[in-house]
Computed example of a mutant assay.
Amino acid sequence: MAEVRLQPTVGALHAEAPIVVNGESWGVLAVDAETPSRIDGRDRLKPFADLMAAAIANAEHRADLTRSRERVIAAADEARRRLQRDVHDGAQQRLVHTILLLKLARDSAAGGGDVTGMLADALAHAEEANRRLRDVVRGILPAAHARNGLAAGIESLAAETPIPVHLALVIPRLPAALETTAYFTVAEAITNAVKQAQATPVSVSCALSGDADELLLTVEDDGIGGADPSRGTGLTGLRVRIEASYGTIEVVSAAERGTRIVARIPVDASDRR
């Protein structure tokens, strides 16, 4: 708090104290009196200014927490809806077609008919269902991640990606919550690169900061760029996930110049919850 300044004017006394919230000036508490007080103004104003600053900071923190919880809940609900939609509209439909074709082929074969074409169609539908299920599973933690940690999970993810993924992973085993957050961050970024950015290769680097207090994630692609988190893309979910872990995320995505995503997540994020 800055020191209160007593500024007497003609026939009056003016005293004020700044209200500082989180290191920034929020306003001023001022008092005017017709006659000087027997008690120095700073003895009265500064404690009140301190109380007001604390109350304002608490109110802002509660509001931030409420908004953060709302974003997390909305993101979780959207993830469940998307998973249900992806399974129903993708793999499930293909499997239904496969079953119908196999039944038709069975009935046709019983009557001596040629079932070669129907079997080929059924196989095509089954293969497409398998591909779409792999896309869905990419949004779920792989077994390699659970057994061997983040590096193994990202390597498994890269192996299932239909475009080349160049990896630079220099990471030890980390807290489970941090590894999960980092894995889904990389998975979402790669999914965006494949489906939205039309990228050919993707580069992923993951390492601890120099003092080992942050995990640094970088995902770059050579796609069409123009990614904008404010449009409600998967980048919005990324930001919510990272901020829920007390981290930060930066997205640089100029049109026709690819996209670069850099996330920083505190290693002790799970201890802060």
Score class of each variant (00 low, 15 high):
residue 1 M to H: 08
residue 1 M to R: 09
residue 2 A to F: 03
residue 5 R to D: 04
residue 6 L to M: 09
residue 10 V to A: 14
residue 11 G to P: 09
residue 15 A to M: 09
residue 16 E to W: 13
residue 18 P to G: 08
residue 19 I to L: 11
residue 19 I to D: 06
residue 20 V to Q: 03
residue 26 W to E: 00
residue 30 A to I: 01
residue 31 V to D: 06
residue 32 D to E: 15
residue 33 A to D: 06
residue 34 E to V: 03
residue 35 T to L: 11
residue 36 P to K: 12
residue 37 S to F: 14
residue 38 R to S: 06
residue 39 I to P: 02
residue 42 R to Q: 14
residue 47 P to K: 08
residue 51 L to D: 15
residue 52 M to Q: 07
residue 52 M to Y: 08
residue 59 A to E: 15
residue 62 R to P: 00
residue 63 A to C: 11
residue 71 R to C: 00
residue 73 I to V: 14
residue 77 D to A: 15
residue 78 E to Y: 07
residue 78 E to S: 13
residue 79 A to W: 05
residue 82 R to H: 03
residue 87 V to H: 01
residue 87 V to L: 10
residue 87 V to C: 01
residue 92 Q to C: 00
residue 97 H to Q: 15
residue 97 H to G: 06
residue 102 L to I: 09
residue 104 L to A: 09
residue 106 R to C: 08
residue 108 S to K: 13
residue 111 G to L: 15
residue 117 G to C: 03
residue 119 L to S: 01
residue 121 D to N: 07
residue 123 L to Y: 08
residue 126 A to P: 06
residue 135 D to Q: 13
residue 143 A to M: 03
residue 143 A to V: 15
residue 151 A to R: 14
residue 159 A to C: 02
residue 161 T to M: 13
residue 162 P to F: 11
residue 163 I to K: 13
residue 167 L to Q: 02
residue 172 P to A: 02
residue 173 R to T: 05
residue 174 L to P: 04
residue 175 P to F: 09
residue 175 P to Q: 08
residue 176 A to H: 12
residue 177 A to W: 14
residue 179 E to Y: 09
residue 181 T to S: 12
residue 182 A to R: 14
residue 183 Y to C: 05
residue 185 T to M: 00
residue 187 A to H: 00
residue 192 N to P: 01
residue 195 K to E: 12
residue 195 K to Q: 11
residue 196 Q to R: 10
residue 198 Q to Y: 12
residue 200 T to N: 07
residue 202 V to A: 15
residue 203 S to V: 03
residue 205 S to H: 03
residue 205 S to N: 00
residue 207 A to D: 05
residue 208 L to D: 03
residue 215 L to P: 01
residue 222 D to V: 06
residue 222 D to M: 05
residue 224 I to L: 08
residue 224 I to P: 01
residue 226 G to M: 04
residue 230 S to L: 04
residue 231 R to F: 01
residue 233 T to Q: 04
residue 234 G to Y: 04
residue 236 T to K: 11
residue 237 G to T: 07
residue 241 R to A: 08
residue 241 R to W: 00
residue 246 Y to P: 03
residue 247 G to D: 07
residue 247 G to L: 06
residue 249 I to G: 04
residue 251 V to L: 11
residue 255 A to Q: 12
residue 257 R to E: 10
residue 262 V to E: 13
residue 265 I to G: 00
residue 266 P to A: 01
residue 268 D to W: 07
residue 270 S to A: 14
residue 271 D to T: 10
residue 272 R to S: 02
